[in-house]
Design a protein around this nucleic acid. Structure first.
Lengths: 379, 379
DNA sequence: TTGTACGCGTTATCAG
DNA sequence: CTGATAACGCGTACAA
């Protein structure tokens, strides 16, 4: 059936065009304002203002009347005027590197929906990791009187600038303070970097972070429990999360008495990761259990295995971390540790809005193992 | 003498700022306003206002002095005040279904970056396809005095509401008017639906759309040129784009004298698509060339082929449409027709901002063939 | 229970 | 070339 359902435009009444009973013709050339509502009822704007926000000092009767008229004439309060008057915004500034990334998109969704529930409107800005754009974002936010800021994996100095401007800020998967805290939380490796919390001058910053160490452990443990004895880790770039996930890998193996095991280093480019895995496979003997830095790396491993004639999961088990959309569509489906992406966003909103202690606080969220087809017990 | 006085004055520090804090421009309580800048220079706020926007009626000397002080005291104009006064916003409302989707993320990126270049700030709202949220989005936009609206694949009646409110709107990959236009553009199939343009009452709507028919043709032509003679099309859900892509498939084959060829229908769920392909392969003989509705469908085909023991591209060539991120990571890499996602967004911004004819206009963007490893000449 | 009056920070108009 | 001044739409002391 080609023609499908065609929805006809439902008859709708355009406000202002139709004559309203007893009310002066409004919005001839402008918008409907409080004055119009007030005039229509023969009351003052003050009364309308109070009634609209449910002030108990206003009689229930007028409150209802006001509400009804406001509704009928499609009154929309001017955000600008209110903002100018009250000096408070219901806007939350959000800086991300790019929204094009599927991962950030999920986080952004979490932010949006939680913010909406709390009556706030997020103002997104994709800074593409460029310092100048980050500054520009801050300018925009400041002009808009935004006082709450959420930064997703910020790169530059936005944070410092933001707190200098007196903003309340929440950081998602942010900086070294978090890393330090995470490492401290694990609290085991004697060779772990000294956990000096960077709380020196970050008075109103809250951190929401994914437990990278835990994810590394979880991925590795899964493999260990499957019965594997021969491992490999495909490292990511020299960033926080990569380091921490490696740490988790090592810890799990150490606790199982299986350490040391190989760690494959590779440049960030996809081709390099694949090459690194290919090279490793050339001298390895199946079965091998591999923990990749992230899902993309895991996919590279999958490809390398395929080219090298290794079967997954028969010869090679692979675990990723993140659970990006792609993970569900690889062949075979990728076992991975999922990040609670939407929750990260939602919690950041809560953190940045929550008035209370302005002491830096770190919230760490656990990953969840998602078992698909890329892992199995060794033959 | 006047300028001398100004220079002297400009050497002074802004009173309000000095009083509260030291040399640092930290604004603890109360922001820096035009009045502060004016006071610091001993001029009126009107002058500052004019100077700041480069009014040639203001002497160059003053303009420079104002700019310098404004810069030094970190003056940021109040968007709210300006908006209240001028009644014009530099905001563009953007409704999408979800940002979590990688595809939309790219489009959004295009919007953001083009808007930024033009001095506009996009206000995103993810309506998740829910009618109530779409209305809410409109409420927010209206409260913010947003007059420009970009809707990405809108579902509900946002469009009608928006134009009823007098907004200028641009639609990306939108509705049936576009579909009709696209079909008209192709202008060949006698059995194509009658191209009645829905321009009945959409006075200020511009459309930006991907050429779905062309994409279908392009994908199919690629396979034809490779020398294939046995084809199959994996259909998508009953939506505009699916119909159009199918149309393109058919046209290309018809022109090559190869029509008819099989069309595989499947429910939207991934598992069903895979099943549909599996069933088809059971009775087909290699080599077969397949055009999938989109990249996700193509991946399903890849999986089905793998399970059925068909080799890609030796036994089965597969082409997708969209070029989502995933396409580059499948095994083998997916040949596909790429949508110019960022350009779609950028053009929508141009369309919605461009004052000129308010006649509905449709811009159609071509896809581009991206050849990877999933297609090859028949053995 | 409701009205009056003022000001938030800007820009536009009218003088000078 | 620049300065007063009014007004944008709203919230809120202060009155009534």
């Amino acid at each position: 059936m080609v023609s499908g359902a065609r929805v006809l435009a439902s008859a709708r009444v355009v406000p202002g065009v139709t004559a309203t009973s007893g009310a002066r013709g409004a919005l001839v050339s402008g918008r409907v304002t409080m004055k119009d509502v007030a005039a229509a009822l023969g009351v003052s704007t003050a009364t309308v203002s109070r009634a609209l926000k449910g002030d108990p000092a206003i009689s229930i009767a007028t409150r209802r009347a006001v509400a009804e008229v406001a509704q009928r004439v499609q009154y929309r309060p001017s955000a600008a005027a209110r903002r100018l008057r009250t000096k408070s915004t219901s806007l939350i500034g959000v800086v991300v590197q790019s929204v094009g990334d599927g991962y950030i998109g999920e986080v952004v969704l979490g932010i949006q929906s939680r913010a909406r529930d709390l009556g706030y409107q997020p103002l997104f800005f994709a800074a593409e990791g460029r310092a100048d754009l980050e500054s520009q974002a801050l300018d925009v936010f400041l002009s808009e009187q935004v006082t709450e800021l959420i930064a997703v994996s910020p790169t530059g100095h936005v944070l410092a600038q933001a707190v200098a401007e007196g903003m309340r800020v929440a950081v998602i998967n942010g900086d070294e303070a978090v890393a330090a805290s995470l490492i401290a939380r694990v609290a085991s490796g004697a060779d772990a970097p000294s956990p000096r919390l960077g709380s020196r001058r970050a008075p109103m910053i809250k951190h929401i972070a994914f437990d990278d160490v835990g994810a590394g452990r979880l991925a590795t443990s899964h493999l260990i429990e499957l019965g594997h004895r021969s491992f490999a880790h495909l490292r990511g770039p020299q960033v926080r999360s990569s380091l921490l996930r490696l740490l988790g890998y090592r810890q799990a193996l150490t606790e199982a008495g299986l350490w040391p095991q190989p760690v494959l280093a590779a440049a960030p480019l996809m081709a390099n990761r694949e090459a690194a895995v290919a090279e490793f496979l050339r001298e390895a003997t199946p079965p091998v259990a591999m923990v990749a830095y992230d899902d993309l790396s895991a996919v590279a491993a999958l490809h390398a295995a395929h080219r090298a004639g290794w079967r997954v999961p028969a010869d090679l088990s692979v675990v990723g971390i993140d659970d990006i959309q792609l993970a569900a569509y690889t062949n075979p489906g990728l076992t991975t540790v999922a990040q609670p992406k939407q929750r990260l966003g939602a919690l950041a909103v809560d953190a940045v809005l929550d008035r209370g202690d302005d002491v830096p606080k770190v919230t760490v969220l656990d990953g969840e193992l998602v078992v698909r087809e890329s892992t199995a017990a060794p033959s």
